[in-house]
Design a binder for these strands. Structure first.
Lengths: 340, 340
DNA sequence: ACTGATTTGAGGTGCGCACCTCAGAAAATG
DNA sequence: CATTTTCTGAGGTGCGCACCTCAAATCAGT
C-alpha cells in the first residue's frame, strides 16, 4: 500500500499540518522538524499523490505555443499536434493555446510576451529566432513566474528555459553523411538551399553538413547556400540559376523545415542526372516525394513528440518536478522510403 | 470553466445520483432518462475528470511485463526503462512488474499467464514468440478482464490485444535499402545472421530485407541465414565457416535484437575488405561499434517508448479510453554515427 | 519570569467524483 | 384499483491532498 501524508505525520511524530507545511514549502517550520519529516518521507518512500494534489489545488495548466505566422505544412502539422495533445491532456487539466507571431519582428514577440498574465498562463513554448529582445522578455517572464521553453528554434537563455528540439549541428552532419554515402562516389556539386542563413538553426545545420562532407567525401563540393527568403519568385530564380551554371549537381540539401517550395522548384529544374536529395521534416509533400523516390532521405523530428515534450517540461516545472530526460530527448530521425 | 457532474445534472433536470448511474453504466435508469443525460453531456461538452474519478475509485494500475529469461544488453535496457517508467508513473498510481519466462517454453508461459489474478493485475505486456498455447492463454485472460499487449515479439491475437513494436517487414526492408545504398555498387555476398529463423520476427525481417536487395541491388547476393541459437561456440563456427568459404563478403546483416555476440565474432573474422554492417537495436555495444565505424547503421526502436507505450495502452484499455494512436506508433529508427 | 515571536497541533472545508443507502415517485402489473 | 416493480432524488462518506484559521505550545531575548 502506498503511504499517505497521514503515515508520514505519524512516522515523523508531527501533525498533518506540519507535513503539509514541509511538503509545500510553507514558512514557519524549524529546520530540525523539516528534517524529521523529510526523513520519514524517505523512510516510507512516500510520494505525493499528484492526482489528489492537483484535484485539491483545483489547478489546471494553461500553456501557450508561440508559433510563426507564416509557414507551410510543417507548421500546420505542429498545430494539429497541439490540438491532439489538448485532447490527450484534457483529463489532466492541461490546455495549450496557439498564438501566432511575426517571426522576424522581435519587438512584437517581446511585447506579446510582456502581455502574458501570470494568472492566466503557466508557461510558454516559443518558436522564434534568438534575439536580445526575446531573451530579455523571457527573463522578465521568469521573474513573473511564467516558465518558457525554446521550441524547435532559438536557444536556451536561462536555467528556467529548456530547449525542445534537435541538435541542429548533428542533424546537418547526419544529412551530410547520407549525402556522402548515397552519392555513389560520383563527383559533383551539392546545392544547399535555405530560407535564410541568418537563423542560428540554419547555420548549425550547414556547419554540420559541411564538416562531414568535406572530411569524408572529397568527390563532392558543397556550393554556397542559396537563400530563398520564403519568396516564390526568388526561390525560382536562385535555384534555376544555380542549376544552369553548374552542370554536375550531384546532390541537393534543403535545410529549412518547409521544403515544399524549394523542392518543387529544384525537382523541376532537374538535369539529366538525378541528384541525391535530402530534406528536413515530414510533411504530406515530403512524404509523397520520398515515396516516389524524388527525395532520398528525410531528416525529421517528430512533431507530436515535440509538442508533448514541451508540455510535459512546462508542467513539470510548474510542479517543481524532475523531468524524465530520456523521454524528452528529441531524436534526429532518418526517414527513407522503407521506414516512413 | 470545465463542466462538472453537477452541471450535467442541472442541465438534464435529474439528480447527481442519476448522472452517476448513467456515467458508470449502472442499472435502473430508463432509456429516456439516459438519453436526456447523454444529451446534456454532449451539450455541455462534459468530460469526466479522470483525476478525480481515479482518486475516488482509489484505483491504481498494476501491470506486468513478461520478458525472456535469457538476453543480453537489449533486454537489460528494457528492464531499466521499466524501472524508469515506474518512477515517472508513480504519481499516477501506475506500477509495472517484470516477470521472466523461458521464451521457448509456451507451456510455462501459458501456465504463468493462467496464474495471474484479476484482482492484482490489470494488464500484461507479453514478449514471447507466438504459439497456440500463449494465444489461448491470452484469450482466457481477456475473459477474466485482464488486458494483454504483444510486446516487441509475437503478434496480435484478438481485439483485446494490441501490438507494441515495429513492423518487422519494414524494418528488414529498411536494412536492405541501407545495405544497398551503402555498398557502393561493388559486387559481393551478404551474410545474414539470426538467432533462429523460427521466430516470426526474424522471418519478416529477412523477407523485407531480401525484397529490397533482390529488387534494387543485383550486385549483392544474400546468403542463406545463419542461425546461432544464442550459442557462442555455434556462432563462432557458422560465422567463421561462412567467411572462409566466401571471399567476397560485402555486407553483414544481424537481424536479432542481441547483436553483441554475432557481431564480435563477425568483426573478428574480418577479411581484407570491410563489409557494410547493419544490425538492430541500440545497446552499449552496438552504440560503441557505431561510433567506431565497425557498424555502419543500426535499425532501432526506442525501448523507453516501447515500455511507456505498452503501459499507456494497457491503462487506456482499463479506463475504456481511446488511445492517441499517433503517439503509440513505434518508429523504425535509423541510427548512424551522426544522429546517435 | 515576562513579553513577543516563532513553531506546532487540531480541526475544518472543498476539489470532482464513485459508491452507497433509503425513501418516495412513477410506471407497469394483475 | 391496489400492488408490485422499476425508476429517481436526496443525502452521506471518503479518496489524498491543499489551504485556511485559531489556539496552544515552545522558543528567544531581556
Amino acid at each position: 500500500m502506498r503511504s499517505t501524508t497521514k503515515d508520514v505525520a505519524l512516522a515523523a511524530g508531527v501533525s498533518l499540518a506540519t507535513v503539509d507545511r514541509v511538503l509545500n514549502d510553507r514558512t514557519g517550520v524549524r529546520h530540525a522538524t523539516v528534517d524529521r519529516v523529510n526523513k520519514a518521507i524517505e523512510k516510507l518512500g512516500f510520494t505525493r499523490n499528484l492526482v489528489a494534489a492537483n484535484l485539491a489545488r483545483g489547478k489546471s495548466y494553461r500553456f501557450v505555443f508561440l508559433l510563426p505566422r507564416t509557414g507551410d505544412q510543417f507548421l500546420e502539422g505542429l498545430i494539429s499536434r497541439i490540438a491532439e495533445a489538448n485532447l490527450a491532456f484534457a483529463g489532466e487539466m492541461v490546455h495549450a493555446d496557439v498564438l501566432r507571431i511575426h517571426e522576424s519582428d522581435p519587438h512584437q514577440i517581446a511585447n506579446l510576451l510582456g502581455t502574458l498574465d501570470h494568472d492566466l498562463i503557466d508557461g510558454v513554448a516559443i518558436m522564434a529566432p534568438e534575439s536580445p529582445q526575446v531573451r530579455d522578455a523571457k527573463a522578465r517572464l521568469a521573474e513573473r513566474g511564467i516558465d518558457t521553453v525554446s521550441f524547435i528554434a532559438g536557444q536556451i537563455t536561462s536555467a528556467h528555459d529548456d530547449f525542445v528540439g534537435i541538435d541542429n549541428h548533428a542533424a546537418g552532419a547526419t544529412a551530410g553523411r547520407l549525402m556522402g554515402r548515397f552519392s555513389d562516389r560520383a563527383a559533383g556539386k551539392v546545392l544547399v538551399i535555405a530560407e535564410t542563413m541568418l537563423a542560428r538553426d540554419s547555420l548549425e545545420r550547414r556547419l554540420g553538413f559541411d564538416e562531414v562532407v568535406n572530411a569524408d567525401y572529397p568527390h563532392l563540393s558543397v556550393l554556397p547556400s542559396l537563400e530563398t527568403y520564403g519568396d516564390r519568385e526568388r526561390t525560382k530564380r536562385v535555384i534555376r540559376t544555380s542549376f544552369a551554371s553548374h552542370g554536375d549537381i550531384a546532390g541537393v540539401y534543403i535545410l529549412g523545415s518547409e521544403a515544399r517550395l524549394p523542392l518543387e522548384i529544384a525537382l523541376g529544374a532537374a538535369t539529366s542526372r538525378k541528384p541525391v536529395v535530402i530534406a528536413h521534416e515530414r510533411t504530406p509533400f515530403t512524404e509523397a516525394a520520398l515515396q516516389s523516390g524524388q527525395i532520398d532521405a528525410l531528416i525529421t523530428q517528430d512533431p507530436g513528440h515535440l509538442v508533448r515534450s514541451a508540455i510535459r517540461i512546462l508542467r513539470a516545472r510548474k510542479d517543481r518536478r524532475e523531468i524524465l530526460s530520456s523521454q524528452e530527448k528529441i531524436r534526429i530521425e532518418i526517414l527513407i522510403r522503407e521506414n516512413i
